[in-house]
Write a protein that binds this DNA or RNA. Structure first.
Length: 955
RNA sequence: GCGAGCGUGGCGGAACUGGCAUACGCGCUGGACUUAGGAUCCAGUGUCCGAAAGGACGUGGGGGUUCAAAUCCCCCCGCUCGCACCA
């Protein structure tokens, strides 16, 4: 823009615009940094010296789900929650809390490794670059973080303690009687002393040699190496947790096929915590939706285990899990999952006499073993997607074997079918078609008998009946369920099964133990070495186990499902072989070559925020107690007072972090049973994207709306709505917004477009509204031409004072509920009112302006600080007390009350605010228009809500 | 299929515990200041009828409870999310 441009001449010199905003913002960001404004002091230890006086205030721990620093940088969708927590944290500081708010980086993991491979750089280099870029972008938003606490999971000083926590888990076992984790050293002491006996057979502890003892203890640890069917993803070259596999059997990252393969992997015994993970949800301030998702994921169900003898195999019983043991008399056949280990044992040599349907398409002209093999191939070839999407057509084949129903000794056929899953229960079921829809369908398909054991209601015309009702057909010489309701019948039959020694009541979970190893380079190495007999924990003194710097860090990927995992660290031969002295002299060991999953670092980062530089402990105990609020009344259930993040972590991260926290709680390292007392799920910012005729994305910022359509130049384009992304050509970055309007405008816009938990579209067009607000606020306080302040000690008129106090009351109420959009609406109203006052009087009364600025400060801190300082204040307003309202000023002298006739508003009357019912009614009757409507009519009823409304019901 | 949530102007959204539907902002229309406006300020803006006064309709659709329903209940439609043969 040339100097002669009329633009430059006419715009007042001191108008609040992007240039001025940027200058103010940079200056205040520097000052906050220099003054260490947001350094939250610990009560003692290394982070206690700065702002120490605030450590005696009540604490508040505000936490964001920390970001994953990708190569693409931040777009406008990312900081929504960060801004929300910053507003809340700044507000709470003004209420007198010592607020811990920091921002770490979740920087290990797959995408960083893939990005490094793409760019040909080492992940440590690209990660450092990405973190730097993220920090710059976040700093420009004016977020009030304590910079000392922003750890990265990739820092050696951090993952040293991730390894330490892993060792805590490894060195623990779950004592079911005490219902908590305890150190294995205590287990060994009890076994040695004979106060506890091994639960894995008859061999007494004293009769076991050292290796047998070690093996027993290893089998009890909360971290163990298990051989179980795991999710093997050759496309990524690694195994994955159940939680990382999508419903259609592909990897959440990269969308590669995933195969179930039995592999030896590290597992964490999260299942021991299943009940506590469910029960403790009750004490948390989380949404019911998230709690429900966690409960469903854990999938607790009560039922019974029942053993069925197999005819002709004296030493073999099929164990099933059922939630309906009361229907046992109606079990007319059994089904094993195709992969079940007993299938080969029990499959008959020849077909017994049976209906042709039982042999089905697979057994028509094959011997049983052949039919079983053919069906297994058929089932294995089906992807997870096919298994679920093909309707629910029941397939299967008879094994030729029979089992005995323990209630009546009836011989019932044993099938294999893929509707029974190996991964749930025992991988085998008793089928009760009369009370189970799936079994009914299968029974129809295979001509199997159906015996009702629950009497359906007379009007029931369905097939399987799942409801309650009296048991029927359920009696033998020893026990009768007939007439009992489902609950009583369950209790009775479980008692009988237990007496006979063929069953017991039990609880089953969908939750599996957590598969904890990955065949990747960019992750935490395990603090584990191996001798010839198994894993050995390194002592704390040998931590950290540093990730070796290698040039060959690419994973070994393949599209062959039978390819085997090949961890990149195995290629670092110098590192793998380690000569160590673990107490019995220097010996050679092999290091664990798997690394931990990305979730490991994110399981406990909030704990390290408390004491990030502590080199002797993962957190100082006194510091931990202070920030967990453990000494409060009542004691806090969770350490973090407010945790804000996306709903996508509803089960994964939040379940894992709760698990780790509980282990640390059991071992006495943290003082709350839960990590996150209040969880708030922010919404997402999405954006429009546009495609041309060929379906190619076009630059969204160049598209204009006109004539009811969208155009790029002359070409009409199609609009779609969804994610923000480079490939969709609709990325808007915070940098763009800061440059065009300033960070305060950007912050305020993000908070204004909707409630924090709602997703909303990004509309750059709308940003101007909040920019105008700030511009007006500025103009009220600062003369645009001279730059002088317009604030004076002029008296405040009554109306303005009332508006101010109403605003304060509303703002306080809404900020507490994180309702920032309505907070801003109230501030707009006050601003609009003040603009009129200042316009007519020529001056802005300080007694209103100062509280106004303090209310604006959490949302738009830079402009608030700038005006605050221009009003003569020399210190930051960060710790100024938030304005209080005078309740007496909230009520006006008079109120306008709508008058309804038959529920329709016909007039409004003005009455004294404290007018009672009769007074309101009288005033309403006196109103001209109301009187005209009531004239000649019969008033049947009058409803008066004093101060709210009057309603005449006329006939 | 099961479970959870949502549906309000042209757009983002507001409405406490059932009590004036559409606060606040964008956009749009008109005006002021201007050589000019993608700046700023002022006024208007749910739909329909009407010159106006005023009236009718109106919170996805239909029904119900109530003096009174966006809000509570029932049925239907649509969208979003989670789970997905869990025995």
């Amino acid at each position: 823009m040339s100097p002669s441009s009329p633009d430059a001449n006419d715009v007042p010199k001191h108008r609040y615009n992007a240039a001025l905003a940027n200058e103010i913002e940079r200056r205040w960001q520097d000052r906050w940094e220099t003054d260490r404004t947001f350094w939250a002091p610990n009560p003692g230890g290394l982070l206690a010296d700065v702002n120490a006086e605030r450590a005696s205030l009540p604490k508040l721990f505000v936490l964001d789900m920390f970001p994953y620093p990708s190569g693409a940088g931040l777009h406008v969708g990312h900081p929504l929650g960060f801004i929300g927590t910053d507003v809340y944290a700044r507000y709470q500081r003004m209420l007198g809390r010592n607020v811990l708010h920091a921002m770490g980086m979740d920087a290990f993991g797959l995408p960083a490794e893939q990005y490094a491979v793409q760019t040909g750089q080492h992940p440590s280099v690209t990660t450092a670059q990405n973190i730097e870029r993220y920090r710059e972008q976040l700093r420009a938003l004016g977020l009030g973080h304590d910079p000392r606490r922003g750890v990265s999971t990739t820092d050696v000083g951090y993952y040293r303690w991730t390894q330490w926590i892993f060792l805590q888990i490894f060195n623990s076992w779950y004592d079911r009687e005490a219902d908590r984790a305890r150190p294995v050293t205590e287990l060994i002491v009890e076994l040695d002393a004979g106060t506890r006996t091994p639960d894995d057979g008859e061999t007494p502890w004293s009769a076991r040699d050292a290796l047998a003892r070690r093996s027993y203890v290893d089998s009890k640890r909360l971290a163990y190496i298990g051989e179980a069917p795991v999710n093997w993803c050759p496309g990524l070259g690694t195994v994955l947790a159940n939680e990382e596999v999508t419903a259609d059997g592909r990897s959440e990252r990269g969308n590669f096929p995933v195969f179930k393969r039995p592999l030896r992997q590290w597992m964490l015994r999260i299942t021991e915590y299943a009940d506590r993970l469910i029960a403790d949800l009750d004490q948390l301030d989380w949404t019911d939706a998230i709690k429900l998702m966690q409960r469903n994921w854990i999938g607790r169900s009560e039922g019974a285990l029942v053993d069925f003898d197999v005819e002709g195999h004296d030493d073999v019983a099929i164990r099933v899990f059922t939630t309906r043991p009361d229907t046992l008399f109606g079990a007319t056949y059994m089904v094993l999952a195709p992969e079940h280990e007993l299938v080969d044992v029990i499959t008959a040599n020849e077909w017994p006499e049976c209906p042709p349907e039982w042999r089905g398409v697979f057994g028509t002209d094959r011997a049983p073993a052949e039919a079983v093999r053919a069906y297994r191939e058929f089932a294995a070839a089906k992807s997870e997607l096919e298994r679920t999407s093909e309707g629910r057509e029941k397939t299967g084949v008879f094994t030729g074997a029979f089992a005995r129903n323990p209630t009546n000794d009836a011989l019932i056929p044993v099938f294999i079918a893929d509707y029974v899953l190996m991964g749930y229960g025992t991988g085998a079921i008793m089928a009760v078609p009369a009370q189970d829809e799936r079994d009914w369908e299968f029974a129809e398909e295979f001509a199997l008998p159906i015996v009702r054991t629950v009497q359906p209601p007379a009007d029931f015309d369905g097939k399987a009946y799942l409801g309650d009702g009296p048991a029927i057909n359920s009696a033998n010489d020893e026990v009768s369920l007939d007439g009992l309701g489902v609950l009583d019948a369950k209790r009775t039959i479980i008692g009988w099964l237990a007496d006979k020694g063929v069953g017991e009541g039990t609880v089953n979970y969908k939750l599996r133990d957590w598969l904890f190893s990955r065949q990747r380079y960019w992750g935490e190495p395990f603090p584990i070495v191996y001798d010839d007999h198994g894993p050995i924990a390194l002592p704390d003194s040998m931590l950290p186990v540093e990730l070796p710097v290698v040039t060959d860090f690419e994973p070994t990927t393949s599209d062959d499902p039978d390819a085997l995992p090949a961890p990149p660290l195995a290629r670092a031969e110098d590192w793998v072989i380690a000569e160590l002295d673990l107490g019995d002299g220097p010996r050679q060991y092999r290091r664990e070559v798997n690394t931990m999953p990305q979730w490991a670092g994110s399981c406990w980062y909030y704990l390290r925020y408390l004491d990030p530089t502590n080199e002797t402990e993962f957190v100082d105990p006194a510091t931990e107690r202070y920030w967990s609020g453990a000494d409060g009344e009542p004691p806090a259930s969770g350490m973090v007072d407010l945790y804000v993040g996306g709903v996508e972590h509803a089960v994964l991260h939040l379940l894992y972090a709760r698990f780790w926290h509980k282990v640390l709680f059991d071992l006495g390292h943290v003082s709350t049973p839960e990590p996150f007392a209040r969880l708030f799920n922010q919404g997402y910012i999405q954006a429009f994207a546009y495609t041309d005729e060929r379906g190619m994305y076009v630059e969204a910022k160049d598209v204009v709306e006109r004539d009811g359509g969208f155009f790029l130049g002359d070409e009409r384009v199609q609009r779609e709505y969804g994610k923000i992304g480079k490939s969709l050509k609709n990325v808007v970055t915070p940098d763009d917004m800061c440059e065009e309007y300033g960070a305060d405008t950007f912050r305020m816009y993000e908070m204004f477009t909707g409630p924090l938990d709602a997703s909303r579209p990004w509309n750059t067009r709308d940003v101007i509204g909040v920019h105008r607000f700030l511009q007006r606020l500025w103009r009220i306080c600062i003369d645009e031409d001279t730059g002088d302040t317009r604030v004076s000690d002029a008296p405040v008129d009554d109306e303005t004072r009332r508006v101010l106090h109403r605003t304060i009351a509303a703002v306080r109420a809404d900020v507490d509920a994180l309702g920032f959009n309505t907070v801003i609406a109230r501030l707009f109203e006050l601003n609009n009112h003040l603009a009129k006052v200042v316009e007519s009087t020529g001056t802005a009364p300080r007694a209103v302006i100062e509280p106004f600025l303090l209310m604006v400060a959490p949302i738009a801190p830079h402009i608030a600080e700038e005006i605050w300082s221009r009003l003569g204040h020399t210190t930051s307003l960060t710790y100024e007390p938030f304005p209080h309202h005078d309740p007496a000023l909230l009520v006006a002298d008079t109120v306008e009350v709508p008058v309804q006739v038959n529920g329709k508003v016909r007039s409004r009357i003005t009455v004294a605010a404290d007018a009672d019912g009769p007074a309101c009614e009288a005033a309403a009757r006196a109103d001209e228009r109301v009187a005209a409507l009531l004239d000649g009519a019969t008033v049947r009823k009058v409803i008066v809500v004093p101060g709210r409304l009057v309603n005449f019901v006329i006939g």
